[in-house]
């Protein structure tokens, strides 16, 4: 419990906003605050990882939301050091489930005589507005690098993609990545090495 006492609270206490929650135990409040802070720290990167795996913004959001709820309901009482690999393990399972479901749905829809493009979302101009704090040439260069990297990462085999993003983006070590992927540390190193080799072969001119 002492490890939570030193954590700052950058966000308001959400449980206190809901009138139906009665947290009288200070340790519970501290733990809720720690969980809130943990989720706030991983949610954006988790969204990017889910987006790379699912290639759909709403599906990525749903996957992250489900992973958050599952972690909070089933593993909130576990030590905070275990949350990150557990969270990414849950997220990975969720992404895989959604990929399978999408594959089945795609096969079914392929047999239907009429299918429209109702899934196409309207572009959100505000959301697509560029960040204002970069000079145009830098922004253009970064946009290009980001575009080709995201495309190349999206085309990686799923396990390589997962190993690369968990280590390069989220910063998990080999053991945590192995827990999150549900495989051995040796497999993580292999997947990561192959991912880097593939990306370097495709993007070497832009990144070195």
């Amino acid at each position: 419990m002492s490890e939570f006492a030193t954590l700052a609270s950058p966000y308001s206490m959400p449980a206190a906003l809901h009138g139906d929650v009665d947290l009288t135990d200070s340790s519970q409040q501290t733990r809720s605050r720690a969980l809130n802070q943990f989720l706030a720290g991983v949610e954006l990167k988790a969204f990017k990882i889910a987006q790379a795996g699912l290639r759909h913004e709403d599906d990525a959001h749903d996957a992250v939301q489900d992973a958050m709820l599952q972690l909070a309901r089933a593993y909130a009482d576990r030590p905070a050091e275990e949350w990150k690999p557990l969270f990414y393990r849950i997220l990975e399972n969720r992404i895989r489930d959604m990929q399978r479901r999408r594959t089945v749905r795609g096969r079914v829809i392929a047999w239907l005589p009429f299918r429209g493009d109702e899934d196409e979302d309207e572009p959100d101009l505000i959301a697509q507005a560029p960040s204002p704090d970069l000079e145009p040439p830098q922004r253009l260069e970064l946009d290009q690098a980001m575009s080709v990297l995201e495309k190349a990462v999206g085309e990686l085999p799923r396990r390589q993609q997962q190993a690369f993003l968990l280590r390069a983006l989220e910063g998990l070590d080999v053991a945590e990545t192995a827990t999150a992927m549900g495989c051995s540390e040796g497999s993580v190193k292999t997947h990561y090495f192959r991912a880097v080799q593939t990306l370097r072969a495709q993007l070497g001119d832009l990144y070195v």
Binding site: A15, L17, E43, A72
Partner: peptide, 18 residues
């Protein structure tokens, strides 16, 4: 994502009744 996080933390707090 912020709303999803708030819901998750509230769910964890509800689960841990005194």
């Amino acid at each position: 994502l912020n709303q999803a996080r708030q819901a998750a933390v509230a769910a964890a707090a509800k689960k841990r009744a005194p």
